[in-house]
């Protein structure tokens, strides 16, 4: 045995292989089973995918680093469930590429923030958090309402997501730009296509308070308002436990 190790060490390549082998075991053992996890965990066949506007909003959430201060993962602890709602299930983030569970709560958890506040509150809060919550330390995001939203490449975004496993249809990809516009303009002819493709329960509103031009504020608020509402699997699980 010592001779074996001595040889291993004398040839640097053998040493390299030993390090890779020894270190790789842990990761493989813990990660590999997670790719078959769908066999055992809860299912949510009725769960819908994000609309193009919500995808754009999610990308703004990522771009601004919101995940650095807000988690989207309610743990199975009594105080968290009472503060934020039913604990998060694995299936709820099955379409999140990447997940945004977060690691720090400088601000509160957002996993179930959808529908908790009005659009007007969200917009005012994002423009200047201290207008709404005087003690807040969140940065202002006033420019989101000034910046127009880029929609011409949303189809490409949906197509890329389909490549990593999100079930977008050809129809959804082809109409991505129009659907983004329609979701924030309920009176436009594009609005009906959104509910036809993503379901009657989809929020179709002028999220930033003014119809017409699409802004980054529209997208981010649309995303925030759908958090925790893509499926009711967590509520069902909570009800079943009581």
């Amino acid at each position: 045995m010592p001779n074996f190790h001595r040889k291993l060490e004398r040839s640097a390549i053998g040493f390299v292989l030993a390090i890779v082998g020894v270190s790789a075991i842990g990761g493989f053992v813990e990660i590999a089973p997670l790719f078959t996890i769908h066999e055992t965990v809860e299912q949510a066949p009725d769960m819908r995918v994000y609309t193009p506007l919500e995808v754009a909003g999610r990308n703004i959430y990522i771009r601004e680093g919101c995940y650095a201060c807000h988690s989207q993962m309610i743990r199975t602890l009594r105080d968290e469930v009472e503060r934020y709602g039913p604990f998060s299930l694995a299936v709820e983030s099955q379409y999140d590429h990447p997940m945004l569970w977060g690691s720090k709560r400088t601000g509160p958890d957002l996993a179930r923030v959808g529908g908790k506040y009005s659009d007007a509150w969200q917009v005012a809060h994002l423009i200047n958090p201290r207008d709404v919550v005087p003690q807040s330390v969140m940065p202002r995001y006033a420019w989101l309402k000034r910046n127009g939203l880029k929609t011409d490449d949303l189809g490409l975004h949906l197509a890329a997501q389909r490549r990593v496993g999100v079930p977008y249809t050809d129809d959804m990809i082809a109409n991505a730009g129009a659907d983004a516009y329609g979701q924030a303009n309920p009176d436009s002819p594009y609005a009906s296509g959104v509910t036809a493709r993503y379901g009657e329960a989809t929020n179709v509103r002028a999220f930033d308070g003014s119809a017409g031009r699409l802004t980054e504020m529209d997208a981010l608020v649309a995303y925030l308002q759908v958090l925790g509402r893509l499926t009711d699997a967590a509520q069902k699980t909570a009800a079943a436990q009581e």
């Binding site: 997670l34 983030s93 999140d96």
Partner: peptide, 14 residues
Amino acid sequence: KSYSLFSGVQDAMT
């Protein structure tokens, strides 16, 4: 922009 190959719980563990 790119989209991670992993999602949800696999992505969190990775």
